[in-house]
Computed example of a mutant assay.
Amino acid sequence: MTVYPHDDPVGAAAAAFSWLRYGNFGVAVFIVLSGYSLMIRPARQGGLGESYWSFIRRRFRRIVLPYWIALAVSLVLALTLLGTRTGTHWDAALPVTWPAFFAHLLVLQDVWYSASINHVFWSVALEWHIYFVFPVLLRVWSRVGRVGLTLGLLVLTTGISGVAGREGVHVPVLQYLDFLGLFAVGALSRTVDARFAMRASAGRTSSMAAFGLLLAAGILLIVLQNTTLAVVAVGLATAAALVAMENDRLVLLRRLLGSRPLVWLGTISFSLYLIHALVVQAVWQYALSPTGFRLEQPAGLALLLPSAGVLSVLAAWGFWFIGERPFLSRTHGQRVEAERSGLGGSDPVHSAPHD
């Protein structure tokens, strides 16, 4: 959460907004979408279609260069306008230290965890490091087999993450390892779609699995208080939903995700992720807090969500032109223009930067 203190919220605010603590669910959805999106081209071509380092160079241009621009903006604001502790989650980004700066500059903040400068950037480093594994995953798949290897990887990484995240252990790079397993599941879900698109049972089974996994995630979270397994269940539900939509199930969800407003929002979603924490903190620090709202008051948070949400989208739209568009491939630009003009297909995946 961005506005709650680091401890769990209390009082009426907790009753209304405590669900915002579970941001890892959103990361799980994104990681699965990323694996699915990156697998679209290899699934069609029967392989990566380029050299290992050519793939890494393209990912560097698409992900790291926009991230560095957002890092520079975050650094300036964390040292100036947003450099005061206000009791919100943004306090984790303060103070700015030299070790934290170099960790972020080298995109190593998931290895040597540091929330300094901007506390949401850890997942950018996580995604960047997963890219180094993706071509290797494709090669091993071709020799060992997809399903067994992916499920084994998911079990292994989830187990390691569960142990590394325990109190007193806390090894950041291992704590996030379950997302590697979910990335592989997302990539696998695209190959399942490619192989079984003509089987009606695939879509029906996948849609039922998606609902069942979401129910399981709720039980794991509420009854067992196991966030790691709940996050994995949400990721698996996302993969199942993707297969279902590609097999003409979950039609309403497919149409919703394919609507022009959400296509447009998906286009700028990486920019939105990079800069939203800055906007949320600025709205709280300079608009709501000075007028008397406090963290424990639901009214302040109720005002913050829509106001900061709208301003974050507008700011992300502007950042997209400066920090993302110059680094997009020509193919990606043509696809975006086609989608905006209504000529694009009904592909439900728009949020993972994969071109």
Rank of each mutant, 00 (worst) to 15 (best):
L256F: 13
F270L: 09
L229M: 13
L262N: 02
I222A: 15
P172E: 00
V76W: 14
A103W: 10
S18R: 08
S116G: 09
A13P: 01
G47Y: 04
V223M: 09
S161D: 06
G203I: 00
G345H: 03
S271R: 05
S351V: 04
V64R: 01
F183N: 01
W122H: 03
R59Q: 10
L221A: 11
S271W: 08
L274R: 13
A230S: 14
Q281L: 09
V64Q: 05
Q285R: 09
L138H: 04
G333S: 09
S269K: 15
V173K: 01
A197T: 15
A187S: 12
A299F: 06
L38M: 01
T191A: 08
V171S: 03
F17T: 02
S307A: 15
Y52F: 12
I117Q: 03
Y52P: 04
P5T: 10
S271F: 12
A197Q: 13
L295R: 09
L242F: 14
F321Y: 11
L38S: 00
T2Y: 14
A210G: 15
A115L: 05
T205M: 15
G323T: 08
L188I: 02
L77V: 07
H350G: 14
A12T: 07
L33D: 08
A210L: 11
A14Q: 15
V185P: 00
T2G: 04
M208W: 10
A299Y: 07
R190V: 07
F60N: 05
P348L: 00
M198R: 12
L343T: 05
L253A: 09
S269R: 10
W122S: 06
V313L: 10
F17Y: 11
W19L: 10
R330D: 10
A244V: 09
L180I: 07
D193A: 14
G83F: 00
V111C: 06
Y113C: 01
L108Q: 07
A125I: 14
A103L: 11
